[in-house]
Design a protein around this nucleic acid. Structure first.
Lengths: 235, 235
DNA sequence: GAGATATGAATGAACG
DNA sequence: CGTTCATTCATATCTC
């Protein structure tokens, strides 16, 4: 239950008041790290922005992630890789140890080791793009793939999150955004009162108050996928 | 244009061995940040050189700082603010792609802290720069200083900007719906915190949290005629 | 549960 | 101005 859809992290908060905005930060899934490492090791250490977007879309198959997260990841990866290299380089002069491969702690699947990969096509904005409604078809990632990327990530249906994971629940429940938070509610009349108390008013995204009867039920039900807002009733 | 005369800090110093524990770069104090943010939010996003010097002198009351630091601060602030805006806009502009359901099961925006975010990416250019255009002299802000700046900072006539403020925040007003209530707000950065307190989160009608910086300013301003929703922050 | 570490996020200082 | 780098802050994870 964590997923900064906006890559927000707060640094210093010199808050005058006692507030604590602490927000969880993005925690990349193992599959996502695998993908990122693979791309990085394939030679694309500094993807241009259009490429960043594509990468983000790829990663999103495994959990939501923002462009900013991808950007930060590559920036940090580059920076720390450079730094480590510098440190290793400076820490020794006399003994030229064998060209250490320097596996990265996090992920070093043998299958990933980028040998004999001609990376060249990348830095040249090859994006044929995805503009049109990101991969409409079941699961084809809009992109042709990166060298070294396991085949599984390309099209294996396993990694294609089904749009309707639970058909059974599907028919009775729906998802709406309430104050920006995805919320499962049943179809039909919704008992706002018992969910949120009596002292709230609900608006739809147009700013119109949602009608409730005296029992706190939304009369006509809500609409799947829509945004609603609950605000305290002004007495 | 103006090149800072070397503040403290060098780009590339591979400190091989003898790490020097000296602080290499300027670390603005909270009070200094407050001043800078206030000036920036007041519309002076690109102070000319002489104004930069005055700002520096103001800041020096709270710690040593060079003109270059001020210059860099505004340059970065401007750059990142614009980039942020671009990013937000790009994410909201293509609104009507096919009614693809696309409900993210991993959805939990957590309308939490709207602290400032920023990252380098996405160019685009153009964007009418806030270039100076002298016109209203006498402190068009109505005060002898920048709006929102605490009294203690307002002792100099410094805060009589010699240049016109950001056209965006010109004394024009616009109307938005807040929780269904028509509300007049100024164009440009809106100080939500002082209007409604610090413990609220604002959403636009799409359910996205409106970004505010740590001072409670809506970064990119609101849009005339749109509906917004203020809800209590969930601690 | 205090230190050590890894790493996401932010930002000052440049570079091109 | 957009982009990049180096540094720093902040938090999650691990260890003893």
């Amino acid at each position: 239950m964590e997923d900064p859809e906006r890559a927000t992290g707060s640094r210093q908060q010199h808050n005058g008041e006692g507030e604590q905005p602490v927000r969880s930060r993005w925690a990349p899934k193992p599959e996502q790290i695998l993908i990122l490492e693979t791309i990085f090791n394939s030679g694309m250490v500094n993807p241009p922005k259009d490429e960043t977007i594509r990468i983000r879309k790829l990663l999103e198959k495994f959990g939501s992630v923002a462009d900013a997260n991808v950007f930060y990841w590559f920036q940090n990866r580059r920076s720390r890789s450079r730094r480590r290299q510098r440190q290793v380089q400076a820490a020794e002069q006399p003994p030229p140890p064998p060209p250490q491969i320097h596996y990265d702690h996090t992920f070093a699947p043998a299958a990933l080791t980028p040998n004999s990969i001609s990376y060249s096509m990348f830095n040249s904005a090859s994006s044929s793009s995805f503009t049109i409604d990101a991969d409409n078809s079941g699961c084809g990632f809009g992109l042709s793939g990166y060298p070294g990327l396991p085949q599984e990530f390309e099209q294996n249906p396993i990694f294609c999150p089904a749009e309707a994971p639970n058909p059974q629940i599907q028919s009775q429940m729906m998802t709406v955004l309430i104050n920006g938070v995805a919320t499962e509610v049943g179809r039909g009349p919704v008992d706002i009162k018992s969910m949120f108390g009596a002292d709230v008013v609900m608006f739809d995204s147009s700013g119109l108050a949602v009608e409730m009867n005296e029992y706190g039920y939304v009369v006509q039900g809500l609409e799947h996928g829509q945004s609603y807002f609950l605000v305290p009733r002004i007495p």
